[in-house]
């Protein structure tokens, strides 16, 4: 029944993408679509922090804000709210690409709007891990430990210890075993 693991925020987003009084049908496709939508929203929020304000606004923040309020006022329609927030994402992306512009005041209002609805009201949080950068971190630690192993094989214990202490300073604990080493990131 399950094609892959789904993070708690994907589940939360999936559930909130439907109005609470509608039935909600589970399927892998629906959850995968929810995961994409959620990531799109989260990327836009990260991007919002880096946006450069201009002298004019081509987007109507007050109108978007009204639509969001209205969606929640009308029997807590989180489905509509998320729809409005995602339509705003397209415009945020446009500003980032220089196709649209936004004033300082509007940018602040837009940030407040997204922070308020996405984090405070919908209770979504930034995804806890990024699997690609986790993978790179794992590979890097493995590579460093291979080098340390080579150093030990060459009886260069000075270097081996420097590597272990350096990793420890980065919050990575190494435990030596007969057949290799265990490690853990704190």
């Amino acid at each position: 029944m399950l094609e892959q693991a789904y993070g708690p925020m994907t589940i939360r987003f999936f559930i909130l993408q439907a109005h609470y009084r509608s039935t909600l049908d589970f399927s892998n496709e629906a959850l995968q679509a929810a995961e994409k939508g959620f990531m799109r929203l989260m990327k836009a929020i990260a991007q919002l922090e880096a946006l450069q304000a201009g002298s004019t606004s081509t987007l109507d923040v007050a109108e978007l804000s009204d639509r969001c309020h209205l969606a929640m006022e009308e029997d807590m329609n989180t489905a509509k709210l998320i729809g409005h927030l995602l339509s705003g994402v397209t415009q945020i992306n446009n500003v980032a690409e220089g196709k649209e512009s936004i004033t300082e005041t509007d940018l602040e209002a837009l940030k407040t709007l997204y922070q308020g609805y996405v984090f405070t009201v919908l209770g979504l949080t930034l995804p806890e891990t990024d699997s690609r950068s986790d993978e790179i971190t794992n590979d890097l630690v493995e590579l460093i430990l291979q080098l340390r192993n080579d150093a030990k094989a060459n009886r260069d214990f000075n270097t081996a210890d420097r590597i272990r202490d350096g990793l420890s300073d980065l919050g990575i604990t190494v435990k030596d075993r007969k057949d290799g080493a265990d490690w853990e990131i704190h």
């Binding site: 493995e142 057949d179 080493a181 853990e184």
Partner: peptide
């Protein structure tokens, strides 16, 4: 649903 997600335990270098 969450299985396999963010379960960081001891990693092993063989």
């Amino acid at each position: 649903l969450f299985a396999g997600d963010h379960t960081r335990c001891w990693n092993r270098l063989m």
